[in-house]
Design a protein around this nucleic acid. Structure first.
Lengths: 377, 377
DNA sequence: GATCTCTGTGCAAACCTTTGCAGTGAAGTA
DNA sequence: TACTTCACTGCAAAGGTTTGCACAGAGATC
């Protein structure tokens, strides 16, 4: 029932190889023949079988995108950017969700391995050694995790944490909590490290609460702890948790930013919709998606193909993998969930402790994110 | 470099067919041989090439999921439910985003056709006739669109609209606006139809505004129109638009629900987080995902396979497609964005016009969605 | 008129599996 | 003993495509 290259060949009176060339190397076939073949193909509704093509060329023109949780609004912009970038290069993206489950991640890499030309591993939860092992099976680009020897796209959450802590300290907060993210998250570790350093430098105390599930509920569940900890400011692992915390504090009757200031990370679109609007560290999510696809496709063109069509040239060059690591910048966006703390006005007053008036608002639009720098290669 | 069945055969001293059987029909091979082969496979890190397998069996064990917009929080629960249901049956799901673009939808169906065993088309934007045509290329299940002769999973938004309008009319609203969804959306048409009927029955006027992009911004952009239309209540195409409208009205200084009541559709998790919390028509998104996968896989096992392995039995049965259409129930969840209207208390007072006190709150948890009914088959 | 170049096409192998069929030898049956 | 049955394994074709190589014929060159 499905029409193959053979049917087209029969219909147009040429050999199947000519039909094949009509599609994959049109310049090699006589214009007259070409139009005839194309007409027949059109007539019969022929579409090249990509799986069969992949079998011999070693190129599927698909890339896999493994995501911890599609429901986390952090990811969709990344997915969309990756998809549009891939489409430009005539690639398709297959997205798979792991439910924050390390075992599912491994499973999926294996399942995808032979059906895609490479995989983007976003915010993986599995161990470094397992990732390295899997990278021998299929080209990998890792997002939100630093891994020696593998191409990585990172967001400078360390810098973001620093900015956030400095912002809070500048507002007069000295007792700050950090709501940690999920176990196994590189971002969470990085955030904690940088926040610790920044807090020490600013003379503030940092209490770490967690690990927590990186969801609204994870934040909500910590509201009680936050109140008990006696802190006046909180930096959350991500916006979702920050928003949950906002909810939880509201339910407990704790005023934000009156009694407690809250800062998130990611700047998901939702963070503009809460009351109060969320101060947050904007991460360049879309840029990360684009960059990761670029790096994967770059690596892909460098690498020899697996099919019989492997060029001798590629072999001569050897398996020289590009392992560039890109760090993308983050930026603090100040909205309404942060306000003066108990030490407002004392020492390092600066521009921040400008009285009880309205806080600085982020300008509503425009690009906020700088281009990434290559950090290592 | 990649290890194939042949390498395993060589290593374990058997024919490739024995290796093949070790994986796909273990009971046909001697236990001793089996363990030896498995050991060798393990040693060499062999993994069956699913693409090659698909070429001959005609079964990829993948299903495609085409989504209008991953960033719309309506979809992730559907995706996750579909994914988990598929995983149970040893299938993988490839998600693709079309950016609300009909042309991209067609593109993607073609691209996926030979790499999956079937496609779930969610809230498609393309024409019925095109969908029908594509369904000849690959098994299709359509979600959120009724289409004769094709298996469909629908949500009873008509009933939802009716409940919403009755709720509003009961609260004393007589001038109601409907914020329409995107052009080409079956749900939007259905909503409009049912809302019109219900409004007439309740003696209320219905003003339709739209079509609009089904996003937060689409709702926000209509705030001005809503105010100008002089309505006291609005039913929005989905929660995202309702939330945008909440924003817009807030910016215009219009109180919700004091001056205008707002109802959304979908009950995305976000709708519990707005101020005021959103009254909305809950749609059984996860159930839809599960059901759609079930229907697709059902159809899949019925249909003869394309590969040479096609059983004669299937042919004897003939191409009997299951074209069941399932309608899932919706339910109105009343929160804080709806309140008494100008005609509150006059006639049909009921339980709704209980003075200016707090409105009814939805209970926070528990299942709200009934199981689906088969409507036709 | 012989040789060369070039364009267009056909041939057949290869990619990695699965599976119907046939063959082997051992155990069971008459 | 001769026959059947059975469990296991090998053989080879098939699935749809790509591509190196060979070849035919046309035109150009000397």
């Amino acid at each position: 029932m499905p029409v193959t290259i053979r049917d087209v060949a029969r219909a147009s009176g040429v050999h199947i190889s000519t039909v094949s060339r009509t599609f994959s190397a049109p310049h090699l076939v006589n214009p007259e023949t070409r139009v005839r073949v194309l007409a027949c193909a059109e007539d019969l509704g022929y579409r090249p079988n990509r799986a069969a093509r992949a079998l011999i060329t070693g190129r599927t023109h698909n890339i896999g995108l493994i995501i911890a949780d599609i429901a986390n609004p952090f990811f969709p912009p990344l997915i969309k950017a990756a998809e549009s970038q891939a489409r430009h290069r005539d690639y398709h993206v297959f997205v798979a969700d792991t439910n924050e489950d390390a075992a599912a991640e491994e499973e999926l890499v294996h399942a995808l391995a032979k059906q895609v030309d490479g995989v983007l591993l976003c915010s993986p939860r599995m161990s470094n050694s397992l990732i390295e092992q899997l990278s021998r099976e299929v080209p990998l680009v890792v997002v939100n995790r630093q891994l020696a020897g593998l191409p990585c796209v990172l967001m400078d959450v360390g810098q973001g944490a620093r900015s956030a802590i400095e912002h809070l300290a500048g507002l007069g907060h000295r007792e700050i909590a950090l709501l940690g993210g999920p176990r196994g998250s590189w971002t969470s570790r990085e955030l904690r490290r940088a926040a610790g350093v920044a807090a020490r430098a600013a003379g503030a105390d940092l209490t770490v609460l967690g690990p927590n599930p990186p969801t609204e509920h994870g934040g909500l569940a910590q509201a009680e702890q936050v109140r008990r900890a006696g802190v006046t400011a909180v930096l959350a692992y991500n916006d979702l948790m920050a928003i949950g915390l906002l909810e939880g504090l509201d339910a407990l009757g704790v005023a934000v930013p009156g009694e407690v200031s809250v800062v998130g990370v990611d700047d998901i679109s939702l963070s503009r919709l809460t009351r109060p609007k969320l101060t947050t560290v904007a991460t360049p999510t879309a840029a990360a998606g684009r960059t990761a696809v670029d790096m994967l496709l770059q690596q892909d063109t460098d690498l020899p193909r697996t099919g019989r069509a492997s060029g001798a040239a590629a072999v001569a060059v050897g398996v020289r993998r590009t392992t560039a690591q890109v760090m993308l910048q983050t930026e603090l966006v100040i909205r309404d969930s942060t306000g003066p703390g108990p030490y407002a006005g004392r020492e390092r007053s600066g521009a921040t402790a400008a009285g009880p008036g309205p806080h600085r608002r982020a300008d509503p639009g425009g690009p906020r994110v700088a281009a990434g720098d290559v950090v290592a290669s």
